[in-house]
C-alpha cells in the first residue's frame, strides 16, 4: 500500500494553519478596530458596532457571488450597474402602482436576467467576461437612467424599508446583517462543501481539463453570472430600503469595493484559489477602515483612493512574497 492518506498529516495543512492569509486579515482587522477605538470612544459600543455594519452589507452581498466568479477565472464589472437597473425597475414599477413585494420580485428577476445575459455572452459567444461586463456596465446603468431620468422614487412602505433599516425584534442586530450572514453561510457552504463549489475551483484552475472530464463548464459559468445578477438585485433591495429611496445613480462605483474585497480576501485574480472566510474578513476589514475614515470625516472620494491603493497592494503583495519565496528557495 503506497497511498497513506491518513497516516501522515498533510504538511500543507500544518503550515497552512499558521501561514493562512486569513490570519493576516484577522490581525489587520484587529488593528483597524483598535485605531477606530482610539478615534472614537463609542466605537466599541455594541450598538455602534452593529450599526456600523449597515454601511457595507450591500457591497458584501455582491461580493459573495463575485468571489465565485473570480475563482472560476472570470470577472463581473457590471454588478453595480445591474444593481442600479434592477432597483430602478423595482422602484419604477412600485411607483406605477405595483404592490411593493411584487415589484421587489420583478427587480430580482431583472437582476437575474441581467446576469444571465452576461453569462450567455461569456459561455456561449465565448467573449472575455471583462469586455462583456464592461459593455453591460454601461448598458445596465444606462437602462436605469432611461427608465427614471433624474427622478427619485421615495415613499416605500415601512414594511419594505425595514429590510434595510430595521433590527431583528428588540435586539441591536440589523436586518441587513442577518440577511448577509444567511447568504454568507449559504455561499460558504456552497463553495467549500458541495460538488458545485469543487467544480468552480476546478474550472478556475484548468478549464480544458474540466471539459475533457465531462464537466459542464458552460452551465457553471451561466449559473454563476445569473447568481451574481440576482445577488446584485438583492443588494439593491437592501440599499434602497436603507435609503428609503432609489435613484438611477444608486451604488455607483460599488464594483471597485467589491472586487477589492474579494482580492484582498485572498482570492487569486487569475482564478482557482480563495476562500469564503477570507472574503468575509476582507469585507469587514474594508468596512471598518471606511467607517474609521468617516469618523475622521474623510470624504468618500478620498476613501475610494485608499481602497484603490488597497486593491493594487492586495495583488502586488502576494506576487512580491511569492517572488521572495522562490528566490530564497533557489
Amino acid at each position: 500500500m503506497t497511498v497513506k492518506a491518513r497516516a501522515v498529516p498533510s504538511p500543507s495543512i500544518l503550515s497552512g494553519l499558521l501561514l493562512r492569509w486569513e490570519w493576516l486579515l484577522v490581525v489587520l482587522l484587529g488593528i483597524a478596530c483598535m485605531v477606530n477605538a482610539s478615534l472614537s470612544p463609542y466605537f466599541l459600543d455594541v450598538h455602534n458596532l452593529f450599526d456600523m455594519t449597515f454601511h457595507f452589507m450591500e457591497r458584501s452581498l455582491i461580493a459573495l457571488p463575485m468571489a465565485f466568479i473570480i475563482i472560476s477565472g472570470n470577472i463581473d464589472l457590471s454588478v453595480a450597474s445591474n444593481l442600479g437597473m434592477s432597483t430602478i425597475i423595482m422602484a419604477a414599477s412600485y411607483k406605477a402602482g405595483l404592490n411593493i413585494w411584487l415589484a421587489m420580485l420583478l427587480g430580482l428577476a431583472a437582476g437575474a436576467v441581467g446576469g444571465l445575459i452576461n453569462g450567455l455572452l461569456v459561455a456561449r459567444v465565448r467573449l472575455p467576461s471583462l469586455v462583456v461586463t464592461l459593455g453591460t456596465y454601461a448598458l445596465y446603468r444606462g437602462v436605469a437612467f432611461v427608465i427614471l431620468g433624474d427622478l427619485v422614487v421615495t415613499g416605500f412602505p415601512s414594511s419594505f424599508t425595514a429590510i434595510g433599516q430595521g433590527y431583528v425584534g428588540h435586539t441591536p442586530i440589523p436586518v441587513p446583517l442577518v440577511i448577509f450572514a444567511f447568504f454568507a453561510v449559504l455561499f460558504g457552504l456552497l463553495l467549500h462543501r458541495t460538488a458545485f463549489g469543487r467544480l468552480v475551483y476546478a474550472v478556475g484552475n484548468n478549464e480544458t481539463a474540466c471539459r475533457f472530464s465531462g464537466v459542464a463548464v458552460d452551465r457553471i459559468r451561466i449559473i454563476l453570472f445569473t447568481l451574481s445578477g440576482l445577488m446584485s438585485a438583492l443588494a439593491g433591495v437592501v440599499l434602497s430600503a436603507r435609503f428609503g429611496s432609489a435613484r438611477p445613480n444608486i451604488a455607483l462605483g460599488f464594483e471597485l469595493d467589491v472586487i477589492t474585497a474579494v482580492v484582498l480576501g485572498g482570492v487569486d485574480i487569475n482564478g482557482g484559489q480563495g476562500t469564503m472566510p477570507g472574503v468575509v474578513l476582507a469585507l469587514f476589514l474594508i468596512g471598518v477602515v471606511r467607517y474609521g475614515m468617516s469618523l475622521k470625516n474623510v470624504p468618500g472620494q478620498i476613501q475610494n483612493t485608499l481602497i484603490g491603493m488597497l486593491l493594487i497592494v492586495a495583488i502586488l503583495l502576494p506576487q512580491f512574497l511569492r517572488r521572495l519565496a522562490s528566490r530564497s528557495r533557489a
Binding site: 464594483e255 471597485l256 487569475n270 483612493t305 481602497i307 493594487i312 506576487q319
Partner: peptide, 26 residues
C-alpha cells in the same frame, strides 16, 4: 503596474481610476 507588476490591465487601471479620481478631490 502592468508591465513590471504584472497586474491584469483591467484591475490595475480600475485601481488607478479611483486613486486618480480621489486625488482630484484631495
Amino acid at each position: 503596474l502592468v508591465a513590471k507588476g504584472r497586474i491584469p490591465p483591467i484591475i490595475a487601471t480600475l485601481g488607478t481610476l479611483s486613486i486618480y479620481r480621489g486625488l482630484v478631490f484631495a
